[in-house]
C-alpha cells in the first residue's frame, strides 16, 4: 500500500540503492563516505557475534514497542480521568512540558541520562513516560473535537460520563491516536538510540557507539539499514492495525 501510494518516491529510493551498489562496489570501493555493499553484507555476521546484535536489537525494539503498547493501554484505561484536563497527571506532565518551551529536549534528555543508570529498565521507563505523555496530550486535544452527535446520542441512551468517554469518545478519537503513533514510534526510535549512544546501555545506540570507536563504517551503515528497515516495518504494522482494527474515520 505504501509503495502504491508513493510510487515515484520508491523508484527514486531503489535508484539510490542501485547507485550505491554501482558507485561503491565497482567505482569507489575504498572511501570514507559509504561502505562497499559486499562488505556491508559480510559485516552482518560480525554484528551478530562481535556487536551482540540480537540482544541489542531486541532491547531497543522491545523498549519501543512494549512501551508504546502499554502507554496506549494505560491512556485508554485512564481515559475518563485524563479527559478532564485539571487532573493531577495532566498538571504534572504540563508542568514538565512547560520547561520544554525554553530548553531543547535533548538537553533535558542529557540531564536525565546523567541521573539514571544505563539499564534496559531505565530505557523502557524513558520510552514509556514519553509515549504516555504524548498519547495522553493527543487524546485530550482530540477528545475536545469528538463528534457531538455521538456523544449526544450516547447520553440520551443513558450512558454516564465515564461510559461516554470509554465507549464513544475513545472510539471516536482512536483513529487519530493510531495515526499519531506513526510519528511517535519514529520519535521513540530516535530518542532511545541517542540515549543508548550517550549512556552506553544495551541497544542499537550502543552498537553505533562501539562502531564509531572502532571506526567501523560498514557496521554503522549496517545498523543504519537495520534501523531503517525496522522503522519501515513498524510503520507498516501500525498502518495495518489502523486499516484492520481501527478502520473508521
Amino acid at each position: 500500500m505504501l509503495i502504491k501510494k508513493n510510487r515515484p518516491v520508491y523508484y527514486l529510493v531503489v535508484s539510490y540503492f542501485l547507485l550505491w551498489i554501482i558507485l561503491f562496489e565497482f567505482i569507489l570501493p575504498v572511501n570514507k563516505i559509504l561502505p562497499k555493499p559486499s562488505i556491508v553484507l559480510e559485516s552482518f555476521s560480525a554484528l551478530w557475534s562481535y556487536y551482540n546484535l540480537p540482544v541489542n536489537y531486541l532491547s531497543t525494539i522491545s523498549a519501543i514497542y512494549v512501551s508504546l503498547f502499554l502507554s496506549y493501554l494505560l491512556v485508554k484505561v485512564l481515559s475518563p480521568y485524563l479527559k478532564e484536563k485539571d487532573n493531577s497527571i495532566t498538571v504534572f506532565i504540563n508542568s514538565l512540558e512547560w520547561f520544554s518551551q525554553f530548553i531543547p529536549g535533548i538537553i533535558i534528555g542529557l540531564l536525565l541520562i546523567f541521573w539514571f543508570p544505563a539499564t534496559g529498565y531505565v530505557e523502557f521507563v524513558f520510552a514509556f513516560v514519553t509515549a504516555f505523555a504524548s498519547i495522553m496530550i493527543k487524546f485530550q486535544n482530540e477528545s475536545d473535537t469528538a463528534d457531538e452527535e455521538y456523544i449526544l446520542s450516547a447520553r440520551s441512551l443513558g450512558l454516564n460520563e465515564n461510559e461516554v468517554t470509554k465507549k464513544i469518545i475513545w472510539k471516536n478519537v482512536e483513529p487519530k491516536l493510531i495515526e499519531h503513533m506513526f510519528d511517535l514510534h519514529l520519535y521513540l526510535w530516535g530518542m532511545l538510540i541517542v540515549f543508548e549512544f550517550i549512556k552506553g546501555g544495551p541497544g542499537l545506540g550502543e552498537i553505533f557507539r562501539k562502531a564509531l570507536e572502532y571506526d567501523d563504517l560498514s557496521a554503522i551503515f549496517s545498523v543504519f539499514l537495520i534501523t531503517g528497515i525496522s522503522v519501515y516495518l513498524g510503520t507498516i504494522l501500525l498502518k495495518y492495525i489502523r486499516k484492520k482494527f481501527v478502520f473508521w474515520k
Binding site: D147, E148, E149, Y150, L152, S153, S156, L157, G158, I168, K171, E174, V246, W248, K249
Partner: peptide
Amino acid sequence: KNIIPLIPEKPSSFPW
C-alpha cells in the same frame, strides 16, 4: 420511561 433516546441532526450510528 427514564430513557428517552434522541436521534440528532446527523444520525449517529457509531462507525466502529
